[in-house]
């Protein structure tokens, strides 16, 4: 469980996050939504100390993150960043690097690391590409390799910054189902999403951010009823009940 209390963070002298109070609970998919530049990615980065917070406290299972070294933090939280580099290595090797934080002397990956990497590749459906070079894959498949690497890290908390980017709709749905499955196993999954329909359909909890602050949080139904989406994004949200559940539509004000 991650507990953020009165957290402020930013870049240099510019404060982006103001007084954030947030609990990220295990067994739930928490989705961060908000307009561009509202601080969603900065919030994730502050949790893994990429953008260290300037005030307040962030604790993982009761331990302050600044007290944990890089390896200990990576054994509790995995992070899929928004901007990614494309390395010139095989898919298997890259997914295997998800196990880096567990490397011990003599610094060779163990049998269980290979097994975990294989499982992660199977989970996202890229096991047949294991010996392919990542740089030769399409953007969507590269995204899946990154997701598999984060899954191979096998942490109680998974942070994903726009994980559905580059994925076609079928793979987006599969990813969201994977997130639900991980949450069902007791993991805390946090995702930054721009697709509000998916956020409403798959999230257990939605956190709405605007200008560096959390303006609403709760279950999707609570957030929908509060009309905070309308005011934050300056759109009108409407929904219709269908055989596959609620479908959400948006139109500009």
């Amino acid at each position: 469980m991650i507990e953020m209390k009165n957290v402020c963070a930013g870049y240099g002298n510019e404060e982006v996050l103001h007084n954030i109070n947030l609990s990220i609970e295990p067994g739930k998919v928490t989705v961060l939504v908000g307009p561009n530049g509202c601080g969603k990615s900065t919030l994730l980065k502050s949790i893994i100390r990429l953008n260290p917070h300037t005030s307040g406290t962030i604790a993982v299972d009761g331990d302050l993150i600044e007290k944990l070294d890089s390896s200990a933090l990576a054994q509790r939280i995995s992070y899929l960043p928004q901007g990614k580099k494309v390395p010139d290595i095989t898919v298997r090797r890259m997914v295997l690097h998800g196990r880096f934080t567990y490397l011990k002397y003599p610094r060779h990956y163990r049998k269980q690391d290979y097994e975990m990497a294989q499982k992660a590749m199977e989970w996202v459906g890229i096991e047949e590409l294991a010996e392919k070079n990542v740089s030769q894959l399409s953007g969507g498949t590269q995204q899946k390799v990154y997701i598999a690497m984060a899954l191979a890290q096998d942490t109680p908390v998974i942070l994903m910054d726009e994980p559905t980017a580059y994925l076609d709709i079928g793979h987006q749905m599969k990813l969201m189902e994977t997130a639900k499955a991980l949450a069902a196993k007791g993991k805390a999954v946090v995702m930054v999403l721009h697709d509000l329909t998916q956020a409403f359909r798959f999230a257990d909890r939605i956190v709405v951010m605007s200008e560096g602050e959390i303006v609403a949080q709760g279950m999707p139904e609570e957030v929908y009823q509060s009309a905070v989406i309308d005011t934050t994004f300056r759109v009108c949200v409407e929904r219709m009940f269908t055989e596959s559940g609620w479908q959400y539509f948006y139109k500009s004000e």
Binding site: K45, I48, R49, L50, D69, S70, S71, L73, A74, Q75, I77, S78, Y79, L80, P81, G83, K84, K85, P87, D88, I89, R93, M94, H97, G98, F100, T101, L103, R107, Y146, M149, A150, Q153, L159
Partner: peptide
């Protein structure tokens, strides 16, 4: 030669490498 994995991680970019536990 003992830091090959670390150098691989550096090639993934600072954010990913830090997320994987590399200082």
């Amino acid at each position: 030669f003992t830091l090959c994995n670390e150098l691989d991680l550096m090639n993934l970019g600072e954010e990913t490498a830090q997320g994987l536990g590399l200082p």
